Computed example of a mutant assay.
Amino acid sequence: MSRGLTAKQRVFADEYLKDGNAYQAAIKAGYSDNYAKAQSSKLLENVGIKSYIDAKMSEIESKKIATAREVMEFYARVLRGDETEEVVVAGLDGAEVVERKPQLKDRMSAAREIMKRYPLAGNDPALAEQLRKIKAEADIAEWKAKELLGDNNAEDKTTLIDDIGGEADGANN
């Protein structure tokens, strides 16, 4: 990453990354005041310095963004009560900062977030039944739409039984 840069150029680039001021970065890197005034913007155009700065910026950005694994690990720590937060508590002698474990509502919220990502339809009979019902309702709606449009295959002799009243669809029409 810093291949081809002199020590001064590397210091310039690192200082520039701190505050974005090319003139101050050049001074801190050891360039003269006159050179810094006249050439600091040219230093930023140097291909080696520019690629060094770009690489460092992308490294900094990637460290700022949490990965999905980090997020799931955080939710799991909250769910288990392992994560703590500092809260200010008022007492007789004034306010003090204490560490507090997640409250039940926080733990339940973490559990919901985890379950959004890892539903256990196969392990939860109630959820599996809800999914089966939704699928059946979708199949019925699709069949009715085809029937109204006349798209149902004439050879398909399947009779649709409506779940209300147990009669064949269209029997009372």
Rank of each mutant, 00 (worst) to 15 (best):
M115K: 12
K50T: 01
A128D: 14
Y118F: 12
A76E: 09
D156A: 04
E73C: 08
K116Y: 04
K105D: 11
S109Q: 12
I164F: 14
Y35H: 12
A90T: 08
I60T: 05
I60K: 14
G4I: 05
Y35A: 06
M57S: 15
L127V: 06
A55V: 12
D33A: 11
W143E: 08
L43W: 01
D54S: 13
N34H: 11
R10F: 02
K18A: 09
Q130E: 12
A25V: 01
S41P: 02
I164W: 15
N34P: 01
Y52C: 02
A13G: 02
I49F: 00
D33M: 07
A128L: 15
K135R: 09
R117Q: 14
A136M: 05
K133Q: 13
A168D: 13
L160E: 05
I114V: 10
S58C: 10
S58V: 09
V87Q: 12
V97R: 13
R3C: 10
I140Y: 06
F12E: 01
D139N: 10
K144C: 06
R80P: 00
V89G: 06
A36W: 02
M72G: 03
T158W: 06
G20E: 05
N172K: 12
L43E: 00
L79P: 01
R10G: 01
A66L: 13
N173E: 09
Q39L: 04
D93S: 08
Y31F: 15
S51P: 01
E147P: 01
A36M: 02
K133N: 11
I65E: 12
N173S: 09
A168H: 07
L127C: 04
E86P: 00
Y23F: 14
L92Y: 10
Q103N: 11
N46M: 05
G150M: 04
D82E: 13
M108T: 04
D19Q: 12
A154F: 06
Y31T: 00
A111G: 08
R10T: 05
S40K: 00
A128M: 15
R69K: 15
E45V: 06
R10Q: 11
L44Y: 01
L17D: 00
L5N: 00
G30K: 04
L104N: 11
D139W: 07
G20W: 07
G4E: 08
A145N: 15
N34K: 14
E96A: 08
A76D: 10
Q9C: 02
F74D: 05
V97Y: 03
E73A: 13
V97D: 07
V47Y: 15
Y118S: 08
G94R: 04
I140P: 00
T67C: 04
K37E: 10
Y35C: 04
V97L: 14
K8G: 04
G20C: 06
A68N: 09
